[in-house]
């Protein structure tokens, strides 16, 4: 057997307990299989501690086992293995969308934790900015997740060691902004209008375009004021790392 054939055989053993190695080296192969599955299980439970708390250990382990069976790891970093778990949860919990949303929130916080460094802009240095032409640069760790449930409130309660609220659908679709300030990943639930405003900025539109969009929606009197309020909030959140 060539090295390549042996390695494909090992992959088949680990992912489906089949292939040319099955039945040979039973004690040794059992050790490798146990290590493989235990490593992936630990990766998932370490990546989703609040989801473990929400589902309970047994249900989480069952969901993780389904993921391990159906989605073998591909990336060189084990951390990447956790990223696709929410897709498996979509399929396992179609009637409980807070489960996958909670997972996507945890996943986003994990990505922000090791994302690129960038210091928030100092608002006191923005005195001479031409706001009509200004481009706003969001933190490189920024991401926006759609939210249809109170997964964010569930996460916050679990993280604080409090009894989480029952899962419920939000009255209106919203979004969750995730970013990192210093070394701490943060998130905030946004109403639809602010989420759309941040999506506009993320797409490369400047503050002038944001004002125009809000004027169109809210009129000349309220549009610029809303844009200014958003900007003030984002600066306070440390979401903006450059203005030029």
């Amino acid at each position: 057997m060539t090295l390549r054939a042996l390695q494909h055989g090992f992959r088949d053993w680990l992912t489906s307990e089949s292939g040319p190695l099955a039945g040979r080296y039973p004690a040794g192969l059992a050790v490798y299989l146990n290590t493989y599955r235990a490593q992936l299980m630990a990766c998932l439970s370490d990546s989703y501690p609040m989801l473990v708390a929400w589902l309970g250990e047994a249900a989480f382990a069952a969901a993780a086992a389904t993921h391990i069976d159906g989605s073998p790891p591909h990336g060189w970093t084990l951390d990447a293995y956790a990223l696709d778990f929410p897709v498996t949860l979509d399929g396992l919990y179609p009637e409980d969308p807070e489960v996958a949303e909670l997972a996507r929130l945890e996943c986003g916080l994990g990505l922000a934790f090791v994302g690129p460094d960038a210091a928030a802009v100092d608002p006191s240095r923005l005195g001479n900015v031409d706001w009509e032409a200004a481009a706003l640069h969001l933190a490189p760790t920024f991401r926006l997740l759609p939210a249809t449930t109170n997964a964010a409130a569930i996460w916050s309660a679990l993280a604080a060691g409090e009894r989480p609220p029952p899962a419920e659908r939000l009255p209106q679709a919203a979004s969750i902004a995730i970013w990192r300030q210093g070394f701490t990943p943060l998130f905030r639930t946004l109403e639809a209008e602010e989420g759309e405003a941040l999506a506009l900025i993320r797409a490369g539109h400047g503050f002038g375009a944001l004002c125009a969009a809000l004027v169109e929606r809210l009129g000349e009197e309220h549009g610029p004021a809303r844009a200014g309020a958003f900007l003030g909030r984002w600066l306070g959140d440390g979401l903006i790392v450059d203005v030029n």
């Binding site: 390695q7 090992f10 992959r11 490798y32 290590t35 493989y36 490593q39 591909h74 060189w76």
Partner: peptide
């Protein structure tokens, strides 16, 4: 790693 799969373990060589 082999064929796009990564075992994340130190697997033996012949």
């Amino acid at each position: 790693r082999i064929g796009g799969f990564n075992a994340h373990d130190l697997l033996p060589l012949p």
